[in-house]
């Protein structure tokens, strides 16, 4: 009898733990919706997303987040262009080319890289990269989208490398042997068989890296300059969606339009991250099938 009660309690506890994450996600989403959706009554969804001016404290406030979306996209695009090729190439090096000793050393380094807090990366970027970019391009400020992209690429690299490497290692050894037995060189085996087999996982890794980049706040706030204007080049200050929320939430009046608008930005970010994760998931499952 006692045993039965014990079983019952344990089962329920496990069930509650399992369901908890779903409940939390739902609660967060509901809260976000509840706080954010009311802005659309005054501004309208289309105007909110496509408005070219973000002057939240002027009178009347102008709440268009197009500059912020563009800022986020530009910084993310730059980071992707840097991090994805570099990450995939280094994953291939670690998984297929490096000797066991080099491989272990590199894997530890990648782990260390992922352990660096983003504020520290932002700080390092601020004192080293920003002046460098300023001097290199002879521009008035080094706080640009370009600087942000470089630092974000560092943050996305560990994710891209480690997940890509898993995908490469998951390519069955028989494929590799089959290719080698047909007289393929190491490079041909890599290029024609292993990349092909690992592709879904590598794409998923890149998507997760992008997800990490778009949600990153601290470093971009420190080094992108935070000017809410629609950027025309990479060498210009930009402001991202995340940095806007972080910078302005503390200064806004609870219940004001500005306050609701920040929550609405949160919804936009949530939707973007969600789509990216779903896409990554689709590729990962394609891999498993």
């Amino acid at each position: 009898m006692l045993k039965k009660i014990k079983e019952f309690i344990i089962e329920r506890l496990i069930f509650l733990s399992g369901i908890a994450s779903i409940v939390f996600v739902l609660l967060i989403f509901i809260f976000l919706l509840k706080e954010g959706i009311s802005i659309f009554k005054t501004v309208g969804l289309f105007d909110f997303l496509s408005g070219r001016f973000w002057y939240p404290i002027s009178d009347p406030p102008k709440l268009g987040i197009l500059p912020l979306i563009m800022g986020s996209l530009l910084v993310t695009l730059g980071a992707v262009v840097i991090a994805v090729p570099l990450g995939i190439a280094s994953a291939f090096y670690i998984a297929e080319v490096a000797s066991p000793r080099v491989r272990d050393a590199l894997k530890s380094c990648v782990e260390v890289l992922s352990a660096i807090p983003s504020v520290v990366l932002g700080f390092i970027g601020m004192v080293t990269l920003v002046p460098f970019v300023k001097a290199l391009f002879k521009i008035p400020t080094g706080l640009t989208a370009f600087s942000g992209s470089i630092m974000l690429a560092f943050m996305a690299l560990p994710t891209i490398i480690s997940i890509s490497e898993d995908a490469i290692n998951a390519v069955p050894r028989q494929y590799k042997e089959g290719a080698i037995a047909l007289g393929a060189t190491h490079w041909q085996t890599l290029y024609r068989v292993i990349i092909h087999g690992a592709m879904p996982g590598v794409i998923a890794a890149s998507m997760l890296g992008i997800g990490r980049v778009i949600g990153e706040t601290m470093a971009v706030m420190m080094i992108t300059g935070n000017a809410a204007v629609i950027p025309t080049t990479f060498l210009q200050p930009v402001r991202t969606l995340t940095a806007t929320i972080a910078a302005e939430m503390g200064e806004t009046v609870r219940g004001s339009e500005h306050y609701y608008a920040l929550f609405a930005i949160g919804i936009v970010l949530f939707v973007i991250s969600f789509l990216i994760n779903v896409t990554a998931d689709l590729f990962l499952h394609k891999d498993k099938r």
């Binding site: 028989q174 494929y175 042997e177 089959g178 037995a181 047909l182 092909h196």
Partner: peptide
Amino acid sequence: GMVFQKSNPFPK
């Protein structure tokens, strides 16, 4: 040329 114990066609 070589043929293996477990058939190993490529995923093509």
